[in-house]
Nucleic acid binder design. Structure first.
Length: 109
DNA sequence: GGCCTGACTTTAG
DNA sequence: GCTAAAGCCAGGC
């Protein structure tokens, strides 16, 4: 898989995330067949978070923490977007992450 | 080519 | 809760 294909795959998965749910970098990486590329997923999102087609605010780390909020213009923007979709965020962390977590592997087939 | 950094993850203490 | 370390790989210097 080339870098461009990887980036494209990341976009596809992120766009599939349903409203009111969120997923992690590791799960996305796993879903596209590159489980060791979590950091690259973050890199890709940092260059595409401004694209309205990509709901990058629904992507957090494995613990449901908003580790990527720094990439947004407003540090609170990511949290506000999540809350507006029904996701409860406390102290930069998604509340009840276990039930909010969306696993791409169960949706892509 | 080496070295450092980064929206990461997991294990260990 | 915390930090540390090892894995991973692209990009910048």
């Amino acid at each position: 898989m080339t870098r461009d294909e990887f980036i494209e795959a990341v976009h596809e998965v992120v766009k599939m995330i349903p409203s009111g749910r969120a997923t992690s970098y590791g799960l996305i990486a796993k879903a596209i067949g590159c489980p060791t590329m979590q950091r690259k997923v973050g890199k890709v999102l940092s260059t595409t978070h401004s694209s309205l087609d990509i709901p990058a605010h629904r992507v957090v780390n494995s613990q449901g923490i908003l580790s990527g909020r720094a990439a947004f213009s407003n540090l609170n923007e990511m949290q506000e977007r999540l809350e507006s979709e029904g996701i409860v965020v406390v102290n930069n962390k998604i509340k009840n992450w276990k039930s909010v977590c969306w696993n791409p592997l169960e949706e892509i087939y």
